[in-house]
Design a binder for these strands. Sequence first.
DNA 1: CGGCATACG
DNA 2: CGTA
DNA 3: GCCG
Length: 496
Amino acid sequence: MFHAPAAPRPRKRSKPGEDSVSRREEATFQDVRIFLVERKMGRSRRSFLTQLARSKGFVVEDILSDAVTHVVSEDSQSSSLWPWLKSRSLSDLSTVNVLDISWFTDSMREGRPVPVETKHLIQDILPEAPKAAPVNKVSQYACQRRTTIENNNRIFTDAFEVLAENYEFNEIEGRCLAFRRAASVLKSLPWAVRSVGATQDLPCLGEHTKAVMKEILQYGRSFEVEKILSDERCQTLKLFTSVFGVGPKTAEKWYRRGLRSFSDVLAQPDIHLNRMQQSGFLHYGDISRAVSKAEARAVGNIIDEAVHVITPNAILALTGGFRRGKDFGHDVDYVVTTTELGKEENLLISIIESLKKQGLLLFSDYQASTFDLSKLPSHRFEAMDHFAKCFLILRLEGSRVEGGLQRAQGDGRGWRAVRVDLVSPPADRFAFTMLGWTGSRMFERDLRRFARLERRMLLDNHALFDKTKVLFILGCTKIFTHKGSHYTIFTLVLRV
DNA sequence: CGGCATACG
DNA sequence: CGTA
DNA sequence: GCCG
């Protein structure tokens, strides 16, 4: 362990009574030798703490020597502590615990030296290390990335999304995910990639993705992507899956029957569309057209009016892409609740009923709450999935929209259909719900992937530390909105 | 070489 | 299997 | 396909 040439130090495995220094004979904890740093502590407080510790059976050294195992400082912020320690010419500083005063006070309270935890450590601010790697590394998890609203790498991400979709159609989920992740990483960059070399330190980019990027940088297009785009099957599947209620399996089924267009499908007497698909075809033009922010706000007003009939204490918050700062979306997401706890249970049912009465409800799929406090570890963020929600298609009158509707060419109607999602948590779960409905799909996936991986890591390390510790703050999740501002939507706290 | 998010209807 |  |  450590060899101390100068200091006379008969401490190791000393036989009882052999030690000549009397207070060390009385000391209970021979393996822990504390040194209190006077700086910021003051002489009188240092002297008081020294007496206190010794009275409780701790060994406190007056001078900093190789005998010291625990250095305690009140100055945890200081950048001067470590340089000072290094100047003391100890034989091996790396084996010494450099600790916050909290370790000392914890130990005094317990009447024994408490195990050293990360929270006690005063880290050395290495002057060289940040120089070597000052570049903020991009995380492989979307939930740890700040993603700008502008996509500076659309030429690549469009290509990756074509490849991802093609793998999805071919049921190769792993590769599909890989290309979606690569696209997500490039979308998060506040700069445009101008050479493959610039992607050196980026995660989720490997041989294949970089080859595609190189091709695009060289020729402005990718041969592989072009081939997919010109493929009839791929085109048809893309067309079919663009219908609300039609996924890859149904699209494939229709394609294999030789169907190539919507009219082909609709002409089949033996094809029975489900409720979702019927609405999908009926409102196809409207719900595949972008929804503007003004339209989203107009939908909000309609929900607001409906909910205020039921309760005056309603809270309504726009989430989804619009909350991330987007100007257009494919649907409108609102979180709606009431401050009267418990009353949120039937809120959506009442809203749906009201919309129906007004003739605004074109489609509705309601899912009651499955949130059970007694059954679920309540603060696990997975709980955000369990609240009452509904997927709607609403009739939106143009007269309600500031600046008018997003309209197709030659559309003479004064209204359009809009996809609307509502979720209704109890008011005290509002934050969880915002977390669950503000992120992109990749964000939500990676939130769970990150939580699982990091939690396992914590559990693995857990035994080494304090078994009574139950709260781990994993980090702060932020979502960029626009022009450098961002929301802090949640701090992940996992109970282990 | 296995894992890749999760829940509901 | 489709939705989020 | 990329990562641990």
